[in-house]
Computed example of a mutant assay.
Amino acid sequence: MAEVWRSAQWIYRAVFLVLALGLLFLKLLPLGQSAGALPGPDILLCLIMAWVVRRPDYLPLVMIAIVVLIEDLLLMRPPGLWAALVVLATEFLRSRVALTRELNFVVEWILVAGLMVGLLLSYRLILAVAFVPQAPFGFVAVQVIWSIVLYPVVVGLSHLILDLRKPATGEIDSFGRRV
C-alpha cells in the first residue's frame, strides 16, 4: 500500500512539472500580446494554490520554489522575490491544511483570493521600496482579478481530470500518519 502511495505522489509531481513547464512555455509564446490588451490570469499560481490546498504532500516546498524561480528568470522579474512570496503563501496554506479540509469551497476561494491580493500588494510594496520600475497597478490588479475568477475552474479541472481532491477523514500517508 505504501508503495502505491509513494508512486502516486511521484506521478502527481511529474504531472505538475509537465503542467508548469507547459504554462511557462505558453507564457513565452508571442500570442496576441498587443498594446492595451487585458492581461491573462496567472494560471500557474492558481494551479499551485489549488494543489497545495487539496494535497500539500504532492507539492514539496523545493519544487514550488524552483518552478517559480524559473518563471521569475524566464519572465525577467526580480529573481527570487515572487518565488519567495509564493513559497510563503503556500506554506501559510500548508500549515492550515487541517482547517482547509473542513472549509466549504466558497470560504476556500475567499482565503485563496485574499492570499492572491496579499501577494500582489506585498510584491508591489517591496518593489516600490527598492525603487524598481513596475507595471501599472490597474494592469496587475486585472491579472489578479482574472486569477481569482479562474481559480474555481482550475480546481474543477484538477478534480475532474486528475482526480485531485482533499484527503478523506482518517486517510493515512505512506508513513502511517493521518493526512
Rank of each mutant, 00 (worst) to 15 (best):
V142W: 09
R124Y: 00
I43K: 01
P41H: 04
G156H: 11
D163H: 14
A130I: 06
F137D: 09
P30V: 01
V155A: 15
V132I: 10
R6G: 05
R96M: 15
F139I: 04
L28F: 03
G36N: 07
M1I: 07
G176C: 00
E3S: 12
A14G: 02
L121V: 08
G156T: 07
L127Q: 07
L125R: 07
A89R: 14
Y58T: 11
S158N: 10
T90I: 13
L17F: 10
V62T: 11
V144Y: 05
Q134D: 04
P78Q: 14
P56W: 06
A128V: 08
L88H: 04
R55H: 00
H159G: 04
F131A: 13
V87E: 08
G176H: 00
Y12E: 00
L103G: 02
R77K: 14
A113K: 09
D42Y: 06
I126Q: 01
L81F: 01
A89H: 15
S122D: 06
A8N: 08
I145S: 12
F92P: 14
L47I: 06
V67M: 04
L47S: 02
I66Y: 11
L88G: 08
D163G: 14
L44C: 12
L21Q: 03
P167W: 01
V144G: 05
P56Q: 05
L75W: 00
L31E: 02
F92D: 14
P133D: 02
L119A: 07
V153P: 06
I70P: 01
I145K: 13
V155R: 15
D57M: 14
S7V: 07
L160Y: 08
I148S: 08
L150G: 02
M49I: 15
L111P: 00
L17W: 09
I110C: 10
L73K: 11
L99V: 11
T169S: 13
L61P: 01
E3Q: 13
P56C: 04
D163P: 06
G114C: 04
L160N: 08
E102K: 10
L73M: 11
D163I: 10
A84H: 04
F139M: 11
P30E: 03
D163V: 12
V107P: 00
F131D: 13
G32E: 06
P133C: 05
G32N: 07
P152L: 12
L31N: 02
V112G: 04
G22M: 03
P136S: 15
Q9V: 10
I70E: 05
L125M: 08
R54C: 12
L127H: 01
N104S: 12
S174F: 05
V149L: 14
L99R: 14
R77M: 11
P167I: 01
L61I: 08
